[in-house]
Design a protein around this nucleic acid. Structure first.
Lengths: 120, 120
DNA sequence: ATTAAAATTGTATTCATTACAACTTTGGAC
DNA sequence: GTCCAAAGTTGTAATGAATACAATTTTAAT
């Protein structure tokens, strides 16, 4: 039940919340909710690819219910995360009129060839 | 002096070390080195863009002396980080014969329009 | 030689995340 | 309905990377 609420929260909020954010929101209406449940569930959902676990903020893991391919912009001042549609991404220096980008990171996750072989 | 050694270490090792990695290596030859110095210095270097602070591993910040545009691949099993040349990156599902990619993250960092304005 | 700024150090603290063990709920077998 | 194992949930305690802080040392300019 808690899991469903957490998943629903992710799908209806595009704010890229942290585990703590979600706990604070949901525990208002469900006072028995445990922080551990939120952490466990988010980990589970991310591992099963039902959501994304974003690591761009070095302080906290942020979660995203939108699993379609898109980028993110983190404002280093207010720490807000904004979605960047894939068609707006160029691999060269990004310069929008809205915001200034001073660095980018492109990360891939999976299993390397060595670990791949070990599995067989 | 310590700063120079740390910077030199980053430039001569393409292993994307963590602060701890660097401390462990350098303290062999410089037993008085402090962990705090390593953390402070890496933070400083990254802020001044002399190196990159990679956040793709949610457990540790990894540092990269190579500031040219390139991507990274993190093996979830052995936690090794491999460089991905920019010309090998396609924004569609990445499938190499060497390794399997099951997710990717494209992150931009800077200041949003609201925070931009506040500064003036 | 003096001295202020910069760099370095060690210890103590913070805080997000995880480990763990206990407890509760769920849903199928009978 | 009752029983029971598996799955889900909870609270507390532990972990560990990163930072705060205050003290000490080094640097370099005058």
């Amino acid at each position: 039940m808690q899991r469903l609420l957490i998943m629903k929260y992710l799908l209806t909020h595009k704010t890229h919340p942290t585990a703590d954010d979600i706990y604070n929101e949901l525990s208002k209406r469900m006072p028995t909710l445990s922080k551990t449940t939120v952490y466990n569930t988010l980990k589970l959902l991310a591992e099963s690819k039902a959501c994304l676990a974003l690591t761009l903020d070095e302080k906290n893991i942020h979660y995203d219910g939108d699993t379609t391919l898109h980028g993110h912009f983190l404002c280093k001042e207010c720490m807000t995360i904004i979605d960047i549609p894939i068609n707006e991404i160029s691999l060269n220096r990004e310069e929008s009129s809205d915001y200034t980008v001073d660095s980018m990171e492109i990360s891939f996750y999976g299993r390397c060839s060595a670990c791949q072989k070990k599995r067989m």
